[in-house]
């Protein structure tokens, strides 16, 4: 078997080549209860930092998406402490100053671009910080659409910004106040309120388990 040596929290292990960092850790005997979620690159729970032999750079990536390399030094970052002030979306206004009012530390950005280099999603993170700083909410929402909230940028930021919470607020403001309304959604909500689906739902709720399973299997599936 083709094997490589990796160092997990400083201890060396021989693991099969081609495994992801997450699988390599499990192969080495770790049981992951934190820092592990969807295993598909979407949930952002498995932020990991590593260095490679002979390379000064500190890399950040998702453990479930990154293949092990020989001589990799690995540490998990299962959680990123980050302050998120309490707010009620319905009491906020979609104005530039809203982001700065809740996250004034955005003003500490020195445009060093470390966040962008740390992002496993290859987002232009610094551009998003700059957009937030100048109050461009749709710009932030657009630039951070693919953020998985892994927290790697937040851990490396010399300005100590809690990026993913800012992005979430910007996307919420954008969604709630700035994107055009879709008329068919409102229409469907009205239909639901008027009881259009009540009979069908009542029938499903009253159904015994076997019937429910049979109905599930017989459901229409889009081609």
């Amino acid at each position: 078997m083709n094997e490589v040596t990796v160092f997990i929290m400083g201890k060396g292990y021989r693991v099969p080549a081609g495994l992801t960092i997450m699988k390599a850790m499990e192969y080495a005997g770790y049981r992951l209860t934190r820092g592990c979620g969807c295993r598909g690159g979407y949930c952002g729970a498995c932020a990991t930092v590593y260095r490679l032999k002979g390379d000064y750079k500190l890399y950040g990536d998702l453990a479930c998406q990154t293949t092990v390399q020989d001589g990799m030094y690995i540490a998990q970052l299962p959680f990123t402490p980050a302050e998120r002030p309490a707010y009620r979306l319905e009491e906020l206004q979609a104005r530039g100053e809203t982001l700065l009012a809740l996250f004034p530390e955005l003003a500490r950005c020195v445009a060093c671009n470390t966040c962008t280099k740390a992002c496993p999603q290859k987002l232009e993170v610094m551009d998003a910080v700059q957009a937030a700083l100048r109050g461009d909410i749709p710009g932030v929402a657009d630039l951070t659409f693919d953020c998985v909230s892994c927290g790697l940028c937040t851990m490396r930021c010399p300005a100590e910004i809690s990026h993913h919470h800012v992005w979430q607020l910007a996307r919420r403001l954008n969604g709630a106040y700035l994107t055009p309304r879709a008329p068919h959604v409102a229409q469907r909500v009205e239909e639901v309120r008027a009881g259009k689906f009540k009979g069908e739902l009542d029938r499903l709720v009253a159904m015994p388990k076997e019937g429910l399973v049979a109905a599930y299997k017989a459901r229409d599936i889009e081609p």
């Binding site: 020195v110 445009a111 671009n113 232009e124 551009d127 700059q130």
Partner: peptide, 25 residues
């Protein structure tokens, strides 16, 4: 295109290179 904050105040000490990265960018 893609300008970033200039930093607004110029760093007046000799060893704080990080503060000059933004404006130079």
């Amino acid at each position: 295109p893609r300008w970033n904050c200039c930093g607004t105040v110029f760093s007046l000490v000799q060893d704080d290179l990080m503060r000059h990265v933004g404006p130079v960018r």
